[in-house]
Each structure stands twice: as C-alpha cells, then as structure tokens.
Amino acid sequence: MTEGGQRQRTLLRGTLSLLAAAAVYEAMARSGYFAPALLPTLPTVARTLVASVADGSIIEHAAFTLYRVMFGFALSVAVGLPLGILMARFSRVEHFFLPLVSALMPIPSFALVPLFMLWFGIGNLTTILIVFYAATFPMMFNTWSGVRSVNPLWLRAAGAMGADEHKLFWKVIIPGASPFIITGMRQAFLRSWIAVVGAEMIAASDWGLGWVIFDAKEFLNTDVMLASLVVIGLIGFMFERFIFGSLERMTVLRWGMMRAAKG
C-alpha cells in the first residue's frame, strides 16, 4: 500500500460521494414529487448565482455583511484582547470580570437581538453590536488563558537575561500567548460570522446575506436562498482557510507551538 495510491483513492471516493449527493439532489428536484419552487435544480441555482454576481446584487449584500462583521469583530478584538491580558496580569481585574463573563456567556447572542432591536432599532448598529457580543467572549477568554499559560521558565529566563517588565510583556508574554490569541481570533471570527447572518435574518434590514436568505423565503425563491448559502459558506471558508490559516503558518506553526493551543 503506497501513500500515493491511497491519496488517489481518497480523492476519487471523495469526488464520487459529492457527485452522488449532487445526483440524488438533482434526481429529487427533477422527479416532480416536489414543487420546483422548493427544490430548484442545480443548474437553476448556478444560473441564479452567476446572474446575481453579474448584476452585482449579491456582491453588494456581501459587502454589507462583511462591513458589519469586520466592524464588530475589530471592536471585539479591541476590547477582548486588552481585557483578557489585564485579567491575566491583575487578579483584581480577573475577580471583577470573571463572574460577569461566566454569567453572560451562556446567553446566546441571538437572544439579545430582539432587545437590541428595541434599543437601537433595525440596521447596522444592532447587527454590529450583536457581532461584538458574540465575538468578545472567545477573544477575551483565549487571551486570558493564553497569558496565564505562558511558561514561567521563559519569564525567568528572560528576567535573568535582563528583560524589564515592559520588554517581558512585548517580547515574551505576547509571543508566548500567541497560539491562544490566534485561536481566540479564529473562534471570534467564526462566532461573528454566525452571529451576523442570524442577526441580519431576525433584525431584517434590507441589506446583507442573511436578509437575502430570509427575504427569499417570503417569495419562495429557493434558488436565491441556495445561491446565497453558497456565498456565505465560501466567504466563511476563505477567511478560515486563508486568513487565519496563513496567520497561523506565519507564527505559531513556524515556532512549533501549535500543540500548546490545542483544546
């Protein structure tokens, strides 16, 4: 059994299973048992997707969604990262925030959507705040555990080599905690992405991929719905793979530290 042969077989089986799934779907769509409005054929979905890209509508929706997600995510990093560091470095801060966080964390972000809609209306502000709420906890928590888990030997070694508090922080603690921080960002983004789609759906706001999907339901435009699902999946996948994947490769993987952040 050679490595190459095995890989080829994996590829072949994977492709076959995808093709089979597509064929089953297509057969169901064409069988006539289901309304075409509910189960459009794959070519229809593809045509809708191409058309919406061509006229730019889906890109505009995606741009709105991305704007909200990036804004909320950036905000969560700006708050969660320093707070996590402070919690790990000063026990007073930790004692104050930890109980609050433990109480707030089990509240799903979607549960706050109706409340935020009342307070902030429908639109960007509500969506961004929901994203912020969803992403801040993982960011903060991972930073906190990362800084706490910095190997004390490194601190002693750096201290012995004459590093002062300031240098210790920037040259040892931050790089030492970086596997966790990156994991935190990754999770925070994932949460943001989930939150933004949900928030756009519930707090329908005329723009955004979540709204498109929900709106399409009203008019039984299942093809639009599936096309947007594809776009949502693709964007999420690309962020996960390319941005966070390469961030990891550039830092912690290169340092051989990834095991440290393994949950």
Binding site: I194, V197, G198, M201, G210, F214, K217, I232
Partner: peptide, 9 residues
Amino acid sequence: IPGLAYAPL
C-alpha cells in the same frame, strides 16, 4: 455555513 443560514431552507 452558519447553522442559522439553513433555517429558511
């Protein structure tokens, strides 16, 4: 794909 996105479907 975020789970909720499947909801309308």
